[in-house]
Design a protein around this nucleic acid. Sequence first.
DNA 1: CTGAAAGCGCTTACAG
DNA 2: CTGAAAGCGCTTACAG
Lengths: 341, 341
Amino acid sequence: MAQKIKLSTIADALGVSTATVSLALRDSPLVAEATKERIKAHARQMGYIYNRRAASLRTSKSGIIGVVVHDIMNPFYGEILKAIETELDRSRHTFLLSNHYDNVEKQRDFLDTLLQLGADGVIMSPAIGTPLDDIDLVLRNGLPVVLIARSIPRARLPVFRGDDAFGTGLATKHLISLGHKRIAMIGGTDDTSTGRDRFQGYLQAMEKAELPVKPEWRIPGPRTKQAGFEAASEFLALPDKPTAAVCWNDLVAIGMMNGIRRAGLVPGIDISITGYDDLEEAAIATPALTTVWNGQPEVGRRAARALLDRIDGVKDQSGTLELIRPELHIRQSTSPVKERN
Amino acid sequence: MAQKIKLSTIADALGVSTATVSLALRDSPLVAEATKERIKAHARQMGYIYNRRAASLRTSKSGIIGVVVHDIMNPFYGEILKAIETELDRSRHTFLLSNHYDNVEKQRDFLDTLLQLGADGVIMSPAIGTPLDDIDLVLRNGLPVVLIARSIPRARLPVFRGDDAFGTGLATKHLISLGHKRIAMIGGTDDTSTGRDRFQGYLQAMEKAELPVKPEWRIPGPRTKQAGFEAASEFLALPDKPTAAVCWNDLVAIGMMNGIRRAGLVPGIDISITGYDDLEEAAIATPALTTVWNGQPEVGRRAARALLDRIDGVKDQSGTLELIRPELHIRQSTSPVKERN
DNA sequence: CTGAAAGCGCTTACAG
DNA sequence: CTGAAAGCGCTTACAG
């Protein structure tokens, strides 16, 4: 590997100062056009590599934005990340990604790394049980935070997420309108705002229709395809078996449809199923999944925009809560009730 | 936000030098135990944040390892990433992730960022058409590179991937052993080593069994569920319709099974299907997918290990090619041929 | 339009 | 075991 080229190498070679080279490479109007061209050409030819650590040490801006979510392999987050990536690319920020797997320690390590690297901001879907102290530490050190998908109780932070109660309400009412009376709610946890809200939306819709809700009809827990698949047998063994299920998300719904089919029943005909999120996969599942669009691209885009605005000092909207309004997408996994004994 | 705490703040407060503080915080044996404790306690109490850019500027180590793949939303890469993450966490490296979407420019931008940040190494599944020059630039600047999943022709780099030709050979032979004679190969591109190898494995198995291969039976392109779903109708419209399909990967296979079911046929009975990769999802698809295990955890683990060894100067194994031996996992999506019409 | 100089916050020889 | 000093490679007032 050749001798390291730095600003002073170029400055010396061309007989100018490092200040001029620095300015020229960043296209400053302070440098004469001809000088600029000469410097840029030489830098290119020498294979000069800009040292961002040095610049960052001096300016205390790093161009790094951190993003932490539960698990990037979950397509729900994947779809949000794609939107964030698109926004950040446009602003030439580098984004540093991490999973916390709902492990508060792991999340804290990552936030620490961001602080050490002098990150410009962080977008996070907070781990279950994130203490306010962890957020305070970050804010005290001047790192702006924007939340996605989940809120943290009592934290004054901008948050972008869907209106979960409204969403499961839509799904539940849809099933009720198809004549279903015994409707289960499968998956999710009451440890997150999302979990509580989705369950509430279902409960309220049932109550409003004056339909009874048996405690056994709530099978909490499942959040993945695998878990949804396993929950199918539990569901099918329920006494006074429900004819429909509102699922926590599309993954659980798709897993459950697979499980139902394995048991010899036809999902969408024998049992109606709704999902949540409207992942790309929902439309090509068989039967195509009736689900609630949860605005992933909107969440990602707006969160990234809000953070960038904040970094650029455009505005400080701490405490903003933007609920994206979900939409019901009706497909083939729900159909009029067909009473079976 | 409070005054920034730095080494000298602590040094001044305790009446020692910054050198001592620096050493103490890194637990150097050069500092007396009592002094160390005093310094650490004070640092903790003051909320000191280590400035990694400053340290990195001085030491020219950053603790950052870059990882670029085609698309992290693809669970094949997701499963590899999980293994890499586990290895790197252990060594306290931060990993910087990016998708290149097979866009050479985007990949180059990312490599550039890594160079600017003084990354310690990079693990990449190179974009289609990656020029040797891009790799040379990175190597010339002292950044070690390890490849996963795909090779770059003529690049002397360690690469970790599955033995693709052997793998599709396994799948094809399995179908032949079930009596299938007309077997299609769906998806993948001949623009990557992987694509060429998988097609070759299929071809060779067919030839060895003296079965004819019609050009129409090769439907190149699909690599996602969506595309596999769409390819189903193309497949079903084939003249002299095949009774089985070797699919590029599990995503294509699962998409195709959905498409076949939509057309009123039963995948696994009417048409036998094989996947590739053995994603977690393969086992819970319905029917459960017969597929080829492609060693994602092994690929990730070994690639990370190799890079870390390289960084620690343990060894330089440029040119190593580690082919992980695939295994056939037989499930319900393949069954003895049942001639129709 | 250009240059000389200071400083960002660390770590590393070197001296004691 | 501890300290004084130099230097990593930039950028930013400031002066001209």
